[in-house]
Write a protein that binds this DNA or RNA. Sequence first.
DNA 1: GTAGGGTTAG
Length: 492
Amino acid sequence: MRGTSFLHLTTTATSLFPNSQRLSSTIKLQQQEKSKHLLSLLLKSPTIHHTTQQVHSQLLTTGLLNHSMLLFNTLLRCYSLSNFPHLSFLLYQQLQQAYFHSPSLSPPSFDSFAYTFLVNASTNFCCLGLGRQFQSLITKAGFHCHVYVQTALVNMYAASGVLGDALLAFDEMPHRNTVTWNVMITGLVKWGELEFARSLFDEMPEKNVVSWTGLVDGYIRMNRYSEGLALFRRMVMLEDIKPSEITILAILPAISNMGEMKNCRLIHCYGEKRGFNASDIRVTNSIIDTYAKCGCIVSALRFFEEISVERKNLVSWTSIISGLAMYGMGKEAVESFEEMEKTGLKPNRVTFLSVLNACSHGGLVEEGFKFFQKMVNEYCIVPDIKHYGCLVDMLGRTGRLEEAEKLALGIPSEIVNVVIWRTLLGACSFHGDIEMGERVTRKIMEIERGYGGDYVLMYNIFAGAGRFEDAERLRHLMDQRNALKVPGHSLV
DNA sequence: GTAGGGTTAG
């Protein structure tokens, strides 16, 4: 890795600042003013990449790079949080090189802030190798007990799924704060280690809303909705912890999976009271989605229409289109799509998937094809298997089985899957096409033999056509192959 | 300065 060559340079670092005595006081003052100005620029708009880059190039051209550790660290932080975290490493390297090329300067000495941001940049850049190198520099620099720096390292390992190393770093910390515990817990939750996360949660001395939300989210992500919601209730009622917008985002999927319309309303009201609905578009969008999934498209629509056009983003529109699709409201979904385009928003693959789904559920075949063409030609989006799935379903539902089969056969072999054929088999069953049903069943068996639902569908096709012998033959085959029909409800 | 995040074929 490119990092090796420049990282080892820091081992001799002792002090960042140059010998400033030689600078005249006027120049020094000018530099301080300039630094102050650049710092305020960064602090004013830390998330605007353009500003960060401008400040960076100013630092390089004016030679101010090694004059203020505060400015350097702030810039490092902006990069680590941006979409280009590797620029943190470039900046780091430039400071090293400034020293390397002018021996009159004192070598840079990176503090706990710099290391924290560099580790975060490694995390966000998914570059564990570099992170490990920083870890050894951190130890050499004497920050092996520093809570912030070590927490950043625990987070790096935990977020990347290297849970053994995360625990090692966590265990070796003589002092931990709530954030340390939280990064460990959320890391474990992220990688499905829920029980382990739970035991740490029970063990941690002071829990805050992030700890609670992390665990609630864990249960819900593992489809353990009632346990997640029970924990949420305990958090609010017994522990008196105020939910945050992230808590709301975590519990809404549980509410929609349980179909708890009442609770959706409750959360909606709570969001109004706390101002989340107005301040966080993600909460707004998730409420639209939850209303729709709880069976109330009217509430979803009403809520959606209350949002101002300026606040609605692509996900808001996609959520309502996908909601309308669930109810077979194809026409309304198409109208929403067109309205969205008028506002200047550019649909993405999910928006197209939702509108295609709406066309398929609403029986709008020609519109569906038009959207597919539009997606490919106008928006240059390469269709994925789900887009094809909608088209097959759309043709299959309306009984255009030959076209559906032809389309399925034309799907690139690298992406075609068993779901496509299962969709077609469902259509064959619905429209009673025995021959195609047999053909499609054979295709499915080539890919996967263990799913009982396919045998059942084919059995129904035979039985429906009065071919009971064939049906029984199939039932035998199913027993022989030990195919299990997965029940319609969850076993947990 | 360090932690959690919305829409997705059948």
